[in-house]
C-alpha cells in the first residue's frame, strides 16, 4: 500500500549543477552537457592550443581531440580532484605540446623530437629573432607541461584562464600564499630552463 503524501518537488539541484553535475550528465551520455562544456571552455581550450602551436588549424584539431576525449572517456576527468576548467586547459596544453613534438618528428632535418625543441636554428647571417623565440617558446611550453600538477594548475588558472592568483587560490581551495608560491616556483623553474636548457647529449647519458 502506497499513499503519496506530497507532490513531487525535486529540489536537490546541488548535485546537478557545477562540474560534478556536468560530469554526471557526460557519463550518462547527455550530449547537451558536452555542448554546454564546449560553450563555456571552447575558447580557453583553443587559446591554450593556439599559444603553443601557433596554428589555427592545429588548435582546431587539438580542441576537437580534447572534447572528444572528455566525451568518450568521461571518467578520465574526476570532479573530486579539480575543476573542469583546469583539467581541460591542462589537457589542451599537453595535446598541443604533443602536436608540436609530432610536427618536429615529421621534419626530415631533425633527428629526434627532443632535439627539435632544443635545436638552435641554422647558423646564418645573424639569427632570425622570431625563429629563436619560437624555439625558446616551445622549450618553455614543453617544460611547463612537465611541471608538477600542483604548480601547473595554478599556472593554467593564472596565466591561460586569466584569473588573479587570489581567484586561482579560491578555485583550487588552497591558501593565497600557496598559490603565490607555486606561481613563483613554476615561473622560476621555467626561467631556469631557459637560462640553462637541458643538454640532449647529457640526457642521453653521453
Amino acid at each position: 500500500m502506497v499513499t503519496p503524501v506530497t507532490e513531487p518537488a525535486h529540489g536537490t539541484e546541488k548535485s546537478s549543477s557545477g562540474d560534478a553535475g556536468l560530469h554526471r550528465r557526460l557519463v550518462y551520455g547527455d550530449e547537451r552537457a558536452l555542448a554546454e562544456v564546449y560553450a563555456e571552455y571552447g575558447g580557453l581550450v583553443r587559446r591554450v592550443a593556439l599559444r603553443v602551436t601557433r596554428s589555427t588549424g592545429a588548435a582546431e584539431d587539438v580542441a576537437q581531440e580534447v572534447f572528444a576525449h572528455l566525451w568518450s572517456r568521461p571518467y578520465a576527468y574526476d570532479p573530486r580532484r579539480g575543476s573542469l576548467r583546469t583539467w581541460l586547459s591542462m589537457l589542451a596544453h599537453r595535446r598541443a605540446v604533443d602536436w608540436v613534438r609530432g610536427e618536429a618528428r615529421h621534419r626530415k632535418d631533425i633527428r629526434a623530437d627532443d632535439d627539435a625543441l632544443h635545436a638552435i636554428p641554422e647558423p646564418g647571417p645573424g639569427p632570425d629573432e622570431t625563429v629563436v623565440d619560437r624555439e625558446r617558446s616551445l622549450l618553455l611550453h614543453s617544460a611547463l607541461a612537465e611541471l608538477p600538477e600542483s604548480q601547473r594548475e595554478v599556472v593554467h588558472l593564472a596565466y591561460f584562464a586569466g584569473r588573479t592568483y587570489r581567484q586561482a587560490a579560491v578555485e583550487l581551495g588552497i591558501p593565497e600564499g600557496t598559490a603565490k608560491t607555486r606561481l613563483r616556483t613554476a615561473l622560476r623553474s621555467l626561467a631556469e630552463t631557459l637560462a640553462d636548457p637541458p643538454d640532449p647529449a647529457l640526457e642521453r647519458g653521453a
Binding site: 550530449e31 558536452l34 555542448a35 564546449y38 560553450a39 571552447g42 575558447g43 583553443r46 587559446r47 593556439l50 599559444r51 601557433r54 589555427t56 582546431e60 580542441a63 576537437q64 581531440e65 572534447f67 572528444a68 572528455l70 566525451w71 568518450s72 622570431t130 623565440d133 619560437r134 625558446r136 617558446s137 618553455l140 611550453h141 611547463l144 596565466y159 621555467l190 631557459l194
Partner: peptide
C-alpha cells in the same frame, strides 16, 4: 616567450560558439 608574438595570433573575439558542430560531430 610563452606568449609568443601575441600579435601573430589570430585570436577571435567574443564567446567561441563557432566550431561547435565540428567539435560535437567529432565527439559523436
Amino acid at each position: 616567450l610563452l606568449d609568443g608574438a601575441a600579435s601573430d595570433l589570430p585570436e577571435r573575439n567574443g564567446g567561441v560558439t563557432h566550431g561547435t558542430a565540428s567539435v560535437l560531430s567529432a565527439a559523436r
